[in-house]
């Protein structure tokens, strides 16, 4: 293996291996506590039982999981797009920023649970209120970070673009947006972590029958402790997967943060390079 190849393998081991190790540690700790303190099985199951409750009921759970994923993804996309748009508008129009910012802060002070009831009244028992709740949670960190990023772009760089005769539109897409990528992705990652929480709250408050949240409630009232814990694990897994996906997009979209040399795309080969 070449030296960069070895370094890359080391990086992968650290970025994938360490989180898996910490996950295993959590399960081991859980097992030790339940066994060591003789915790009753109706209070907490052993990890194995919780996992089995998921795998054995997978055909029942899968459509519910899909539903939660759908709410999370749609809500996230709507919230992120709205958050980005609001952030740009507010950064560009200081008057609007003064006007809208307090309203946005107010929107986040409303307890989400208290938001669910009126949303159901307005939108009915459907996917819509859940998407709205997720978007409600996701847009805020995106907006705040985009405003912050756009207002910290190097003034000298903007002046340079101006001296070259660049239009505001070009300057925005070629300079301001890439320069804002770090805070933008911070906002998206914060949003991604909370998106599933929003979806589950929405399911609790606005479900018409079948959903992951109601499945858990049902298990709880049946004293099926293993299924209660198992469902929590599934919800957590959805949240982590979505977060990791956003991180993956970030890694892909910002190669200059880790690389010294740009990737070579097969569809963007420059003939001149081959000749050289």
């Amino acid at each position: 293996m070449s030296a960069p190849g070895r370094r890359r393998a080391g990086l992968v081991a650290r970025n994938v291996g360490v989180p898996i190790l910490s996950l295993v540690l959590v399960l081991v700790l859980w097992q030790l506590i339940v066994v060591g303190f003789h915790v009753a099985s109706y209070v907490a199951p052993r990890p194995r039982e919780a996992i089995l409750s998921v795998t054995q009921n997978w055909s029942l759970l899968w459509p519910l999981v899909l539903g939660t994923i759908r709410e999370t993804v749609y809500g996230f996309v709507v919230g992120a797009a709205l958050g980005f748009f609001l952030g740009v508008i507010m950064a560009k129009v200081p008057f609007l920023q003064g006007l809208v910012y307090p309203v946005l802060v107010l929107s986040q002070a409303i307890p989400i649970i208290a938001l669910a009831a009126p949303l159901v009244l307005i939108l009915g028992f459907s996917t819509a209120p859940k998407i709205v709740i997720v978007a409600w949670i996701v847009f805020f960190p995106v907006t705040v970070n985009v405003i912050d990023g756009l207002s910290h772009v190097d003034r000298d760089l903007l002046n340079l673009a101006k001296v070259y005769g660049a239009s505001r539109w070009r300057t925005f897409w070629q300079i301001e947006i890439p320069a804002t990528s770090t805070p933008l992705f911070s906002g998206l990652k914060i949003g991604a972590t909370y998106a599933v929480t929003g979806a589950i709250i929405g399911e609790l408050a606005a479900s018409d029958g079948s959903s992951l949240a109601l499945y858990q409630e049902h298990a709880n009232s049946n004293l099926n402790t293993a299924a209660v814990y198992g469902t929590t694990m599934v919800m957590t897994a959805i949240g982590i997967s979505w977060f990791l996906l956003v991180v993956g997009v970030e890694v892909f979209a910002t190669p200059w943060r880790r690389r010294t040399v740009a990737r070579r795309w097969p569809w963007r080969r420059d003939r001149d390079d081959v000749a050289q």
Binding site: D154, D156, L157, L160, A161, V163, Y164, G165, A166, S167, R170, T171, Q174, I175, P178, A179, S181, T254, W256, A262
Partner: peptide, 27 residues
């Protein structure tokens, strides 16, 4: 005019080649 400062103002997200052609990309 062409204009250059003590700060190089290269954009970190573009390669050397793409930084050199920056003016055309902007205009």
């Amino acid at each position: 005019v062409g204009y250059m400062l003590q700060k190089d103002l290269l954009v970190p997200w573009r390669t050397v080649e793409d930084n050199i052609t920056m003016a055309k990309r902007l205009t």
